[in-house]
Structures are given as structure tokens and as C-alpha cells.
Design a protein around this nucleic acid. Structure first.
Length: 424
DNA sequence: TCTGGGGTCCTAGGACCC
DNA sequence: TCTGGGGTCCTAGGACCC
């Protein structure tokens, strides 16, 4: 049987962050691993053998006992490591397929349309090559739409031993088996709320959703759900997006390593977050016209007074100048800060982004001076070469008191010369 | 004591215009 | 005195993803 006209694959790394840690710690091959979010807050990745003991998203302080009892190895997030390992995996998949879309740090879609030969065999080759070259195990799902490829991938993970980590459901019979045997909540795009609503309509399996009336789905929910159902039937509604489009908003938001009560350290944090946000802005060659700065107290502890406040500020002209952005943001912090609260988090949002040269110049509008472009360019170059924060605004401290908690951080094995893997 | 961070898309409703 | 209706733009909020 010839391959269908349109075919997608989804390659997805298994327990990605946990797998990255394990690559450099072969002594932990048989030890369950969990990786925590920033500030060692909650669980965001679990190795296969840790899943039975620890729930995804569980706060670390609640699982300490289990961790000790089961001998689970805990890691703080090490995004320098995960980002670099991700690039290696993506490069390999890109070299083996014609066109690709990197969907997230651990997932990549490929367009296999028109590829000759046995697609299952190609899937197995991808899996074997990535494992051999990076040490990261992946699953591969193959199908005629992106939503079905996601589902195939999910099945490959769920039935790891039977499938060898590769599932191809281009065949109608296999596709229908998977649809019938998958809960609708496992479908890409169906979250908790929709699941509850669909249950009321007696739509329980992926097959039920595929067979539901598209018009009804559009009326009751939205075009998004309608498209999902059509994709499950095999009608492609989503295309491969090879070039990542420029972001419409850029955000840098982080909880502090400890509660802050004074204005000064909060201003330091906001200046730091703005530095990071403006780096992202310049990296995609955009300018920003509005910013929003917000701060808040903890929201979980019932004994803590709750407060949240933010300010939206329009800039005099579209800019990517970290000096103007920081000055504006610090003014905003003063505006929103109220004494007497324990603040836990600040957020900087860059809004109304436009590509360089795209905005309409009105006669009286000032635009960013050329000297700024040169200064920002040199600063980004220096920081790119010598590390983030080498050159920074005076309002950004090197070792702040409010720094992120990262008690279980591994080395940056692949991106720092002074932290290379050592074999003795 | 301790509960992540960064995005997307869609829809509804208000403001405003003619 | 008459108090419509269609269109656009913007914003806030909801839902989802990893």
C-alpha cells in the first residue's frame, strides 16, 4: 500500500528533563528522578520509575517524605542543560526528515508527505539515532494529521513495550482502534474544563469526539474544538509551521526566592526581569510600545494578606532600549507598590510589539535613535559571548538576596567549560 | 516556611464611528 | 421629537498547551 498523500510525525522526548539529568548521571540509571520548577516549587518532570510515587505538579514540600522513603533523586530545573540537549535532539530529527516544526522544548513535528519507503522503519531509525547520539529516549507518532500524530505518539508512550516507542496510525483500522481506546481528555486541545463539558454530552472517547457533529461542536464550544474533531477524522486543519512566527507578547515573570517587603529589592527584581524580557525582544527584532508591570503576594497561604497590583504604561515611541524600558518599569513599580505586604512575585510584560520598520510613523512621532541600536547591539554581543548579565544596568545586582532557590542544581555539563563532565 | 513560567487562540462586550 | 444598525477596534477573560 502506498503512503498517504499527507503524513505528519511527532517526535517527543520521554520524561525530557529527567532524561537529560540521567544522561550525565549513569549511576542513576535505576534510581527514580524528579525535576522541580523554579524556586524548587513543584514537580515538573518525573522519570518513568518515579511516576507511580509522585504526582505531576505536586509541591515539593508535600512529597519530601515519599522522596526519602523511595530513594528518589531530586533536581532543580537546569534550563541551560535542557535547552542545549533539546537543540541536539532537534538537529538530528531535522537532518532525517524534510521539513520540521519545533513545537516545544521536547517535541518536534515533521512533514513526512511524499517520503518513500516504510514510515515505521523511518520512525525506528529516528528513535535509535537520537538515543545513540544524545542518550535521550524519544517516542514517534505517525499519522495523517497533527492531532492524530499527537495521539499516535501518546499511544507509543502508553504502550512502550508493545510498540517499541513507534506508532503509525495512517492505516484506518489502527487509527480507529486508537480512537476507541483513548479517553477524550488525552486528545490535544481538550483540557479539564472541556472534558467535563464533553462528558455531559456523553462524549467520552476520542472516537466519540471524532464522530460528533462539527456544527454542534462549533456552536457549543468554538472553532478550535470543531477543528480538533475534524483532525481526528483525518481532515487536516493544522499545517506545519516551519518558521516560528514572531511573538505578540513577551513575558518575564518569576517568584522570588523569599518573600520581599521593601520596595528596593522588588525594583531590583523588576529591573532584572526587564533585562531578560528586552533580550528576547531584540532577539526577535521587535520593538515594544506598551509595558505592563505587576507585583503580587503569595496566593496560597490563607494566613497571608493578599494583594496584587499592576500598571500598564505606553512608551513615548516603539523601543527595544533596555535603559528606557527599565526606567519606565521602575516608575511603574513605585506606582503599584503598597507597603505592608509580603510580596512573592513580579511580572514584566512587553505588549503591542511591532517588527522593526513596520509601525506607521506619524509626522511628529520620535523614533529610536540609531545610537541606541549600536549600544544595544554591542551589549547583546558581549553578553552572548561572556554570559548573560556580564554587561547590565546598575539596578541589576549580581547576587541578589531574592535569587531563585535551586538547592538541587546539576552542572551545566554542555554549556560551561568550567562544568564539563569529568570521568575519573 | 515551601505551590512554575511562558505562551497561544477565541469570544464577548464596550467604545466609537458613520 | 426621533433614540437604529452595522462595522471595527480594543480589552479582558477563559481555555488550552508544554
Amino acid at each position: 500500500m502506498p503512503n498517504p498523500a499527507q503524513v505528519f510525525s511527532l517526535t517527543d522526548c520521554n520524561s525530557f528533563y529527567a532524561s537529560c539529568e540521567r544522561v550525565f548521571r549513569p549511576d542513576l540509571a535505576k534510581t527514580p528522578i524528579v525535576v522541580l520548577s523554579n524556586n524548587d516549587g513543584c514537580v515538573i518532570a518525573r522519570s518513568y520509575d518515579a511516576k507511580p510515587f509522585v504526582k505531576m505538579g505536586a509541591p515539593y514540600f508535600q512529597i519530601k517524605d515519599i522522596v526519602r522513603q523511595r530513594g528518589i533523586q531530586v533536581f532543580s530545573s537546569n534550563y541551560a542543560l535542557y535547552g542545549d540537549m533539546s537543540e541536539r535532539v532537534m538537529t538530528i530529527v531535522e537532518s532525517m526528515t524534510d521539513s520540521c516544526e519545533t513545537y516545544s522544548i521536547d517535541e518536534i513535528f515533521s512533514d513526512l508527505s511524499g517520503m518513500p519507503g516504510d514510515l515505521d522503519a523511518l520512525g525506528r531509525r529516528i528513535r535509535a539515532t537520537v538515543l545513540r547520539c544524545t542518550g535521550i529516549p524519544v517516542g514517534v507518532g505517525i499519522a495523517t494529521t497533527k492531532t492524530l500524530a499527537k495521539l499516535a505518539n501518546h499511544t507509543a508512550k502508553r504502550l512502550q513495550t508493545q510498540t517499541g516507542g513507534v506508532v503509525n496510525i495512517c492505516d484506518d483500522f489502527k487509527r480507529d482502534w486508537v480512537l476507541r481506546n483513548t479517553d477524550v481528555s488525552e486528545v490535544w486541545g481538550i483540557g479539564r474544563r472541556l472534558k467535563a463539558h464533553l462528558t455531559e454530552l456523553r462524549i467520552n472517547s476520542a472516537m466519540d469526539l471524532a464522530r460528533a457533529d462539527p456544527q454542534m461542536l462549533r456552536n457549543k464550544f468554538s472553532v478550535v474544538v470543531e477543528k480538533t474533531a475534524r483532525e481526528l477524522r483525518g481532515t487536516a486543519c493544522l499545517e506545519l509551521e516551519e518558521a516560528a512566527p514572531a511573538k505578540h507578547e513577551i513575558c518575564c515573570s518569576r517568584a522570588f526566592g523569599k518573600r520581599l517587603t521593601d520596595l528596593q529589592p522588588i525594583k531590583e527584581a523588576v529591573a532584572t526581569y526587564m533585562m531578560r524580557a528586552s533580550e528576547k525582544l531584540r532577539a526577535q527584532r521587535s520593538l515594544c510600545r506598551k509595558i505592563r508591570v505587576s507585583i503580587r503576594t503569595g496566593m496560597f497561604n490563607p494566613n497571608e494578606a493578599k494583594f496584587a497590583n499592576g500598571a500598564l504604561i505606553e512608551l513615548p515611541y516603539p523601543t527595544d532600549d533596555v535603559r528606557i524600558l527599565t526606567k519606565t518599569a521602575l516608575g511603574a513599580v513605585e506606582q503599584v507598590f503598597r507597603p505592608g505586604f509580603n510580596y512573592s512575585k513580579a511580572e514584566v510584560l512587553l505588549l503591542n510589539l511591532c517588527r522593526r520598520g513596520e509601525f506607521t510613523e506619524d509626522l511628529f512621532a520620535t523614533s529610536q535613535p540609531e545610537s541606541t541600536d549600536r549600544i544595544m547591539g554591542v551589549m547583546d554581543q558581549i553578553n552572548g559571548r561572556w554570559g548573560r548579565g556580564t554587561l547590565r544596568s546598575a539596578s541589576v545586582p549580581a547576587a541578589p538576596e531574592w535569587a531563585m532557590r535551586r538547592e538541587f542544581l546539576s552542572q551545566s555539563y554542555t554549556t560551561r567549560l568550567d562544568q564539563l563532565w569529568q570521568v575519573s
